[in-house]
Design a protein around this nucleic acid. Structure first.
Lengths: 107, 107
DNA sequence: TTTAAAACTTACCAAAAGGTAATAACATTA
DNA sequence: TAATGTTATTACCTTTTGGTAAGTTTTAAA
């Protein structure tokens, strides 16, 4: 990413969500805030390491909010920020296109 | 991709375009058909190998059309299919989101 | 004092992605 | 006959990605 003229905006978006795991995570969080463990149980295919990593990156990018409770055992809740929620139309459009695409492939 | 229940449709879409190079290629082809060399000159950062690879995959996925002329030296023209063009609103939405995001990061 | 629970963190390793550079193919032109 | 131009293909190698599994932290409960 030496970005000659600050990179194409589509690439910017993709660098934030163009990722198998992130769209799944966002999809889950669109339904409301979730604890780490809940997320993990909902998306079992992702490893703990990856889930942490992706969430942290999304937090840094301003897409999710991380709320840590001073409890033991720890409780951490993740929720989409407004910015994160603003991705909904895009994900929705992608979902629509994707299911339409699959329909074409089958029937 | 063992896909337990045929994969999330957003993932389907991402598997087709969730890729730095592909969105750039589609972006170019939205302006009209281009020869291989033209594409390469327009996107110099991509290697020849990658450009070929991505185009072939997009052809297989039904996003682009590959037209080979029986000439020497060879002439090959790439153009978006209707399916490929149907991605335009999505790319446009991503572009809009992305530039808005960057605006927020700066100002 | 040991155990348990939740959310990480780290080390290590295997697989995948992607770059470079050399090579092919072949009709036309010099 | 040799060079040229365009679109690939291939081998080799480096980098990146991501999985597994073990360890950490801290308080409360047994």
């Amino acid at each position: 990413m030496t970005d000659q003229e600050t990179e194409c905006p589509v690439e910017t978006t993709l660098s934030l969500i163009g990722d198998k795991w992130k769209v799944l995570i966002i999809g889950e969080l669109l339904a409301g805030m979730k604890r780490f463990g809940e997320l993990h149980r909902t998306i079992p295919r992702i490893s703990q390491k990856m889930l942490t990593q992706q969430l942290r990156q999304m937090e840094k990018d301003g897409l999710v909010n991380r709320k840590v409770y001073a409890e033991v055992p720890p409780r951490v809740e993740y929720a989409l920020t407004e910015l994160g929620r603003s991705l909904k139309p895009i994900l929705h459009a992608m979902a629509k296109w994707g299911s339409n695409y699959k329909k074409g492939k089958k029937g």
